[in-house]
């Protein structure tokens, strides 16, 4: 299995633990992730709300790079996944829109052809690698570790565009957590948004939304697992915004998978997590 790896701005510049663990876990599972030369920002979820044509063109340029590589795209950010998936779908289905966007792209020398698919990393694990294979690779499983999954929004929504799991009852993260031997717990508000996009508008709203979930998860679990850089940053940083830091470890899902697969704390970049997550290591079978 081989994919064009679209890492995205925030993971590239701020979350080495996510990227490192995603690459190492892929390697363990025999999945080759190839970097995309010349790729850039996906366009951001904001751009779509300001100017659809610009958003489509920025995303289409990145998709065209993967098309030239002849590879489907794997992403690790919910926002990038949404932008690239929606653009891919819209331009495949609407030839007039495709022609219009390709006209915008003319000077770049790139053209959207509609020959590849876009998948989030967790979706790739479920649909292409298979949960059984992930479970079989977990040679150092967790024991008596409770984890609260946080899906975020754009992995699943809008559901008529993303065409993945039911946003009211998603499964993939829970299944992946269970594949590591850990218990995936249910908790109130599991599918609620992190409000990360409001951080730059009214910061306090985001910290409040974040703390509400952190405090809930703390009642039910030892750690939280995410699959989106913005959700991760919200739930980690909000804890440092109060005097009573709840110290709930937040991990990127490939970090959890990687540890269970026998990777070291360093190999999954665990020291880059700002809330100390080393307690997880004590919950692994020797």
């Amino acid at each position: 299995m081989k994919y064009a790896f679209f890492v995205g701005c925030t993971v590239l510049s701020r979350l080495p633990g996510y990227e490192k663990s995603a690459r190492k876990v892929a390697e363990k599972l025999g999945v080759e992730l190839v970097d995309m030369p010349g790729s850039s920002c996906c366009g951001t979820t904001y751009m779509e709300t300001l100017d659809r044509k610009t958003a489509l063109a920025l995303a289409a340029r990145n998709i065209a790079i993967a098309e030239e590589m002849g590879l489907d795209i794997v992403t690790v950010c919910n926002g990038c996944t949404e932008n690239l998936t929606k653009t891919n779908k819209a331009l495949k289905e609407d030839p007039a829109l495709r022609a219009e966007v390709n006209e915008i792209l003319r000077e770049t020398g790139k053209q959207f052809k509609g020959t590849v698919e876009v998948k989030h990393y967790v979706r790739m694990l479920k649909e292409d690698v298979g949960l059984d294979k992930v479970k079989a690779a977990s040679v150092k499983p967790f024991k008596e570790l409770k984890v609260g999954a946080h899906y975020g929004c754009h992995l699943l929504k809008p559901s008529d565009e993303m065409l993945f799991e039911d946003p009211n009852d998603p499964k993939v993260l829970d299944d992946l957590i269970r594949a590591t031997g850990a218990e995936s717990v249910d908790y109130p508000g599991k599918t609620e948004c992190c409000a990360g996009p409001v951080m730059g508008i009214r910061e306090k709203v985001t910290w409040n939304v974040g703390m509400d979930k952190v405090q809930t998860v703390k009642k039910y679990a030892d750690a939280m697992a995410t699959c989106c850089p913005f959700c991760y940053i919200t739930y980690e940083r909000c804890q440092f915004m109060t005097e009573t830091n709840p110290n709930l470890p937040v991990v990127h899902i490939p970090q959890l998978l990687g540890l269970a697969m026998g990777l070291t704390a360093d190999e999954v970049g665990l020291s880059t997590n700002k809330v100390d997550a080393s307690a997880l290591l004590a919950k692994q079978e020797a």
């Binding site: 080495p16 970097d35 030369p37 010349g38 850039s40 610009t54 063109a57 920025l58 770049t108």
Partner: peptide, 20 residues
């Protein structure tokens, strides 16, 4: 231990935003 980030073709992005 990570490879360099892809060098984005900023000229191409500038061409896109100029056009829109």
């Amino acid at each position: 231990g990570l490879p360099p980030a892809p060098t984005p073709a900023t000229e191409e992005i500038k061409a896109i935003v100029k056009k829109t």
